[in-house]
Design a protein around this nucleic acid. Sequence first.
DNA 1: AACAGTCCCAACCGCGAATGA
DNA 2: CTCATTCGCGGTTGGGACTGT
Length: 242
Amino acid sequence: MNTNRAEFANCKTLKQKEEVEEIETKMEIEIRRGPWTVEEDMKLINYISLHGEGRWNSLSRSAGLNRTGKSCRLRWLNYLRPDIRRGDISLQEQVIILELHSRLGNRWSKIAQHLPGRTDNEIKNYWRTRVQKHAKLLKCDVNSKQFNDTIKHLWMPRLVERIVSTQNVEFTPNHYSPENSTVATAMSSTSSSESMGSSFYGGDQMEYGTLDHVANGGTCFNGGDALETLWSVDELNNWLLQ
DNA sequence: AACAGTCCCAACCGCGAATGA
DNA sequence: CTCATTCGCGGTTGGGACTGT
């Protein structure tokens, strides 16, 4: 025991000191879990504003937070970051989520990259609470071809129709179809932002505008109850039976 | 008003990948 | 190269808010 004490006292490297601190921390302080307090938030914000992100475990200790590095990282990325966008998922964002999910599956962080200010957690929650709810109502699996077709041929066109009409863009039925989509073009006609990359619809070789363009573009619509007001369950079921 | 059921979202957990010693 | 640590992702859960009876 005394030998260890002496070793601790003599340790010189940062790594050694961090290890000692960690041992002492584990012995003396209970790691906090659960909801964050305002005080904890402030500590994290202040520390990151001075020292930047990264090295979350040591950051947690240095900032005087009795939290795991993981917990700090999550709190920062999903809640405290200054560029976080709050509020309902807009209609444009819904279209992007549905489209990207059909291509990428449950790769939430990849999908989130196309939605500035939205976190993977938020998109994941949206999918689970809103989209899966509709699959449940229709009594089909969320990953089934049937449900994917519903999204592709009914849900997305309706969303796009609503976006276009809200933006007062001239709309014809040809503006959106899964096989021949000019949706992004129509939707981005009021947008001033620059195109940033990925093709919007129909696979890698097709060029119908860009998702990022849509995400960044124009007016932001409140889409909170959009799914529920686009159609009734009966209407969906009738469509499925066709 | 009280209770039960459902919804929603912040936070946690486990695992694999990346990085460093 | 190996092992330990850290990071990031996707799945899951707990509990407060909301809604219906």
